[in-house]
Measured scan of single mutants.
Amino acid sequence: TTTLTYTDEEEARKAAEELKRRGITFTYTKRGGTWEIRIK
Rank of each mutant, 00 (worst) to 15 (best):
K30Q: 13
Y6C: 02
T2K: 11
I39N: 01
R31W: 07
I37S: 00
T1H: 12
E18R: 07
A16L: 09
T5C: 05
D8R: 08
E10H: 12
A12V: 03
K30M: 08
T3A: 05
L4D: 02
E18D: 13
A16R: 05
F26Y: 08
R22W: 07
I24A: 04
A15E: 05
I37P: 00
Y6V: 01
T7R: 08
K30F: 12
I37T: 00
E9T: 02
E36Y: 14
D8W: 03
T5Y: 15
W35Y: 10
T27C: 05
G33A: 13
A15T: 10
E9S: 05
R21T: 07
L4M: 10
T29E: 13
R22A: 12
T1S: 12
Y28T: 08
A12N: 00
R13K: 14
A15Y: 09
E11M: 09
R13C: 03
A15H: 06
L19A: 01
T2N: 08
R31I: 15
K14F: 07
T34Q: 12
W35A: 02
E18Q: 07
R38I: 15
D8T: 13
G33D: 15
E10W: 12
E11P: 03
T5Q: 08
I24G: 02
T1E: 14
K30G: 05
T25H: 13
K20G: 06
K14E: 10
E36G: 01
A15D: 04
T27Q: 06
E36A: 03
T7S: 09
G23E: 03
E9N: 03
I37W: 00
G32M: 06
T29A: 09
G23I: 01
D8M: 06
K20E: 12
E18C: 05
K20N: 10
D8Q: 07
E9I: 05
T5S: 08
T1F: 14
I24E: 04
Y6D: 00
T25W: 11
E17F: 09
T27H: 06
G23K: 04
I24H: 03
E11Q: 11
T25V: 13
T34H: 13
E11V: 06
E9Y: 08
E9C: 04
K30W: 08
T3V: 15
Y28K: 05
T2R: 11
G32F: 07
G23L: 03
I39Y: 12
F26K: 00
Y28Q: 06
T5A: 05
E17L: 11
L4Y: 14
R13E: 09
K40H: 15
R38Y: 11
R21G: 06
K14Q: 11
R38F: 10
G23T: 02
T29I: 13
R38D: 07
I39T: 03
K40N: 14
I37A: 00
Y28N: 02
E17W: 10
T1M: 13
R22C: 06
A16S: 05
R38T: 15
E36M: 07
R31D: 08
E10R: 13
T25R: 12
I24T: 04
K14L: 11
E17T: 09
T27M: 05
I24L: 08
L19I: 02
T1L: 11
G33R: 08
A15Q: 07
T1A: 12
T29F: 10
E36R: 03
T5L: 13
R38N: 12
F26C: 01
K40T: 15
I39H: 03
G32C: 04
E10M: 13
G32H: 08
E10C: 04
W35V: 08
D8A: 06
I24W: 05
K14A: 13
T7G: 07
E11C: 03
A12R: 01
E17N: 09
K30L: 06
F26H: 03
R22H: 08
A12K: 01
E17D: 12
T27E: 13
R13I: 14
E36Q: 07
D8F: 05
T2D: 08
G23H: 05
E36N: 03
T27W: 07
K40L: 15
T2V: 15
T5N: 06
E11Y: 04
W35L: 02
A16F: 08
I39P: 02
K40F: 15
E36F: 11
W35F: 10
R31C: 04
L19R: 00
E18V: 07
T27Y: 06
T34P: 02
K40S: 14
E17P: 00
W35E: 01
K30E: 13
G33Y: 09
E17V: 08
K20L: 13
Y6A: 01
I24Q: 04
E9M: 05
K30V: 11
G23F: 03
E18Y: 11
T25C: 06
D8P: 01
A12P: 00
K40Y: 15
L4K: 04
Y6M: 02
I39E: 01
K20Y: 11
R38K: 14
K14D: 07
Y6L: 02
T25M: 12
R13N: 10
T2S: 09
Y6G: 02
A15S: 06
R13H: 08
F26P: 01
T29Q: 10
G32I: 04
T25G: 09
A16I: 15
R38P: 00
D8C: 03
E36H: 05
T7Y: 13
E11F: 04
Y28H: 03
T7W: 11
T7K: 07
I24N: 02
A12W: 10
Y6T: 02
G32S: 06
I24S: 02
L4G: 02
R21S: 10
T34G: 08
Y28D: 01
E17A: 13
E18M: 08
E36I: 15
Y28L: 15
E36K: 03
E17M: 11
